[in-house]
Design a protein around this nucleic acid. Structure first.
Length: 739
RNA sequence: GCGCCUUUAGCUCAGUGGUAGAGCGUUCGAUUCACAUUCGAAAGGCCGUAGGUUCGAUCCCUACAAGGCGCACCA
């Protein structure tokens, strides 16, 4: 009771309560006191499962995580109280490239570089780094009140996950869904790895557009430096201006001598752009690469003139050519400038358009221009997978909240291209493939092959590349449940809800659907709930470089997790980016105290309660009961339709402005009056209402409600018998009370 | 280029085919009685613009405008 003599202090309560919950074992569905089915034939045990999107183990939690945890915890707690066997399975993500980038920055600060560290040592260092982060994050998740089952926690580099991921790759290879192809990949010269198309961000740039003379033809290009790799000139087939040249070789003066080059016709050329003629450089441009694929018989193989570091590499292709040395080894932009000068000198530069704007692809991490580079990589054939993924959603096997993301999802899948899953980094799951040291034949296998089938050679080396991290996390929902034969998998798969940010709809959600359907023949979840990105008060994205990142734990320390959760939930509809403000949190901290003070009032006024007096409810009491019952129906409906933002707001409003401001106030006179009967009735009324309200508030504000429940259930045990409350109340925790 | 979204009170956002809602903020007032992390009251909106459907539109349809975003091989 002394506790109630001061404002509510979350610090005194929250960590203590979390320990009680953890000790109770109720986070684990196996320990839940699920009502025995009355009729075992018709009534099945109801399961509800959410796989927590594993936070990246390369830093600490941000507000987006806090939002994710709040939403999922609300769903889980509501379902748990509604009698479901609830499993919320936590995890942590090694986050491949993301983590390696973070770690490389750390190395840079220390004056080191990953290219000077052995593979084994780098792996070990990043391993230690992620393990430390993981431990921190687990505690942060606890501080936010997440009622997840820690006994089932998984890490994306657990041995079974690694092994199963490799199995899938092998299976897909055997079934022709994975292939090794030498194609243009998005190469980052800083990070020295290829990236998937999703990891490319496009930005508009203004670059000079050079009009240059290739013999009788003038053509326009930005990328002058690739001219040494030209293998053709292309024009549109219907372009009258160039018809006479098509199929013929024309002599052109390059800067390193004279050569002949063929003119070809291809529909990819836009006759209205520039002069309607383009130079074709298949080794350094995706469009040109595709043109080459269509004209393989007519023109020579691609010539790579830029190396992996973004420098001119010419000597290899043009040995014994003195002129070449002038450009060899130059960086792209330097080369471009010098070539332009040289061409101008020789009268080969017709004009320069300095206002030309176009889109360039950048590395989404370092914003360096990505260099299209011709190299062999492992690709996943997307079309068959995408088709199934579209069908599953069309057939409503998976529903999106909000629904509009369906359209975006379809749009993406319709235009999908094959997925490059090779990464030239160490931090990840190594690809189970081997190359013959003699003939370079690739063998897909976990174990080192004994002999090359092609050349009988016996020495192999393993592909040093690792998987795109999303290739393994795309299989997370069923791997963590112990696919294919574990009990967890049988009980909880397909899972109920996948709740995550809309920003990873393609990266993760779509891949989970595709790979889930492929491996398990089932959609991995029934609902996709997509939350928005938490923004600062100026609606800006929070990022370390902007310095506007808010540490959720700082907020928790100051105002309590309950207040933070309410601030994140209320006014936040799915799919829309919420704006975060500390004022809002302060408001809900005040609300927590309001709940606290109302409790105090009730406890004070029921101290000398006489349990022999049966409550006689007044007409007004009954009216209030009716209102409460209506509210409960309404809230339940909102919970079922995933409108947590409205449910929380209504509860807030009812508690404060109806229960506290009206009901308590209108009962004050009764409590202070002479009529004992009336007094008893009033108290029973208050307690009953109270019992319902803290139950409904519990999913949203789990800590304070559990704390109060502890005080109420001990104190009010005798009286609650009269109003049909559960027995053994003092033994019970609110977390498993009936909704 | 293809596509998605937004536009409602000063701010952040809900919402419904039948004369507009919340939180915060603002203004005025109260207050030894659970709570100043309080209570009561008030001000404040032609629900982006123009058409259409309808007995009736903020809500449905069309166009337009402004803003945001996603996808995309135009050199």
């Amino acid at each position: 009771m002394d506790k109630f003599n001061k404002p509510y202090d979350p610090k005194e309560t929250e960590e203590k309560i979390y320990k009680i919950w953890e000790k109770s074992g109720y986070f684990n569905p196996d320990n839940l006191p699920v009502a025995k089915p009355k009729n075992s034939k018709t009534k099945k045990i109801k399961n509800f499962c959410i796989i927590m999107p594993p936070p990246n183990a390369n830093g600490s939690l941000h507000l987006g995580h806090a939002l994710m945890l709040a939403l999922e915890d609300i769903m889980i707690r509501y379902k748990r109280m509604s009698g479901f066997k609830t499993l919320w399975l936590p995890g942590a993500d090694h986050a491949g490239f993301e983590t390696q980038v973070v770690y490389e920055k750390k190395l840079e600060k220390e004056g080191r570089s990953r290219f000077q560290i052995s593979r084994e040592q780098l792996w070990q260092e990043i391993w230690d780094f992620t393990q430390a982060n993981k431990a921190t994050m687990e505690n942060q998740i606890r501080r936010l009140g997440a009622s997840c089952d820690w006994s089932r926690e998984k890490f994306t580099l657990d041995n079974d996950i690694i092994s199963k991921t490799q199995d899938t790759f092998i299976q897909m290879y055997d079934e022709g869904l994975v292939y090794r192809g030498k194609r243009l990949v998005n190469w980052c010269i800083k990070h020295q790895t290829g990236l998937s198309d999703l990891e490319v961000k496009h930005e508009e740039r203004k670059d000079p557009l050079y009009y240059i003379k290739y013999g009788p033809i003038t053509l326009a290009t930005v990328r002058l430096e690739t001219k040494f790799g030209d293998t053709a000139i292309a024009v549109h087939p219907k372009d009258e201006r160039y018809k006479k040249f098509v199929g013929k070789e024309i002599e052109i003066e390059t800067l390193i001598g004279k050569t002949k080059i063929k003119v070809i016709a291809d529909n990819a050329v836009d006759p209205d752009f520039g002069t309607g003629a383009v130079k074709v450089t298949p080794a350094h441009d995706p469009t040109d690469f595709e043109i080459w694929q269509r004209h393989k018989d007519e023109i020579s193989a691609p010539i790579e003139v830029i190396d992996q570091f973004g420098k001119m590499n010419l000597i290899e292709h043009f040995p014994n050519n003195e002129e070449v040395k002038k450009y060899h080894g130059l960086k792209i932009l330097e080369a471009r400038k010098i070539i332009a000068e040289e061409m101008e000198k020789r009268g080969l530069l017709f004009k320069v358009d300095n206002e030309y704007k176009h889109n360039v692809g950048l590395c989404y991490k370092c914003s360096n221009i990505l260099e299209p580079r011709l190299m062999p990589q492992w690709f996943v054939k997307m079309e068959p997978l995408a088709k199934e993924a579209v069908n599953a959603v069309k057939k409503n096997e998976i529903k999106f909240i909000p629904e509009r993301f369906k359209k975006i999802y379809f749009h993406w899948l319709k235009n999908i291209r094959d997925w490059n899953i090779s990464r030239q980094i160490v931090w990840g799951i190594q690809i189970p493939a081997w190359f013959c040291e003699n003939c370079n034949e690739a063998v897909v296998s976990k174990k080192k092959p004994l002999e090359c089938k092609k050349c009988r050679h016996k020495d192999f080396y393993q592909d040093p590349d690792v998987f795109d991290t999303w290739f393994s996390s795309g299989q997370w929902p069923f791997f963590v449940l112990g696919y294919p034969d574990a009990k967890n998998y049988k009980n909880f798969y397909p899972t109920s809800v996948m709740e995550t940010g809309w920003d990873i709809l393609f990266f993760w959600v779509a891949r989970m659907i595709m790979l889930g359907l492929y491996k398990t023949k089932k959609a991995p979840f029934q609902y996709v709930y997509l939350h928005g990105l938490v923004r600062d008060q100026d609606k800006k994205k929070m990022s370390k470089s902007k310095g506007n990142v808010i540490d959720p734990l700082g907020i928790v320390n100051e105002y309590g997790a309950d207040a933070l959760r309410m601030a994140l939930i209320i006014g936040n509809t799915p799919g829309n980016d919420p704006v975060f403000s500390e004022d809002k949190v302060r408001g809900y901290r005040n609300f927590a105290n309001k709940i606290w003070q109302a409790t105090r009032f009730i406890l004070i006024n029921s101290e000398d309660f006489n349990e022999n007096i049966k409550p006689k409810f007044s007409a007004l009491d009954k009216k209030r009961f009716k209102e409460l019952a209506d509210l409960k129906k309404e809230i339940t409906k909102l919970m079922e339709s995933y409108k947590f933002y409205t449910a929380a707001e209504k509860l807030y409003h009812y508690f404060w402005h109806t229960f506290a401001d009206k009901i308590i106030e209108e009962n004050k006179s009764r409590l202070n009056g002479e009529n004992k009967n009336d007094r008893a009735a009033a108290q029973a009324l208050l307690v009953t209402i109270f019992n319902d309200l803290i139950k409904m508030l519990h999913p949203f504000m789990p800590f304070i409600t559990e704390e109060i429940y502890g005080h109420l259930s001990i104190k009010d045990k005798p009286r609650r018998r009269g109003v049909g409350a559960p027995t053994e109340a003092s033994e019970k925790l609110l977390i498993i009370e009936k909704w």
